[in-house]
Amino acid sequence: MAQKSEKEIEQRIEDLPTEFIALIISSADIYSIAQETALKVLIGKKGMNGAYVTFNRPYSTLKATIKGMGLDLSKLFFIDLITESAGGSAERCATDNCFYVSSPKNLTELSILMEQAMLRLPAEKRFVFIDSISTMLIYNDPDTVLRFIHALTGKMRLLGITGIIFLLEKESDEKFKAQVAQFCDKVITI
């Protein structure tokens, strides 16, 4: 079942054109597989560079996971919203490609850092990866999250950046999903 899902996810993401914003609605049991497959396609197959916004896994964990997948870590820039709020210490050194946001509630700071991260990416073939709106909703009210996503997708379109936004299937109501979907070019339900 997992293998079939992985193939399906791989195919659906590979088929996406560039400069496209996709909302991926995934069930909890294959959420990790969906994310890893998406990264393998974007970085491994399409050779893209990206900004990875993480509300769930700290940068230190993600580094190890992505290396373990055999992907080139230098193709990713991270924005970590979990480490500092969970009481961890940010790894700040000149060679590290990670910004830290003090709290998952601080969408203002996230917006500022996203702009900086997007401008750091190479001129062509770039993406933004958001893991995940569901966790964003735990800390922020739906209206604020919608405003944020709307502003972010607008910036991504102006800069010609591909977007992959993750949402857990059963964690948000249909009205919210529909509102987020209107900001995206395609909804992929896995």
Binding site: K105, L107, T108, S111, I112, E115, N140, T144, R147, F148, A151
Partner: peptide, 9 residues
Amino acid sequence: VFPKDSVFG
């Protein structure tokens, strides 16, 4: 100042 960004919340 970040004139192109917004305050959320």
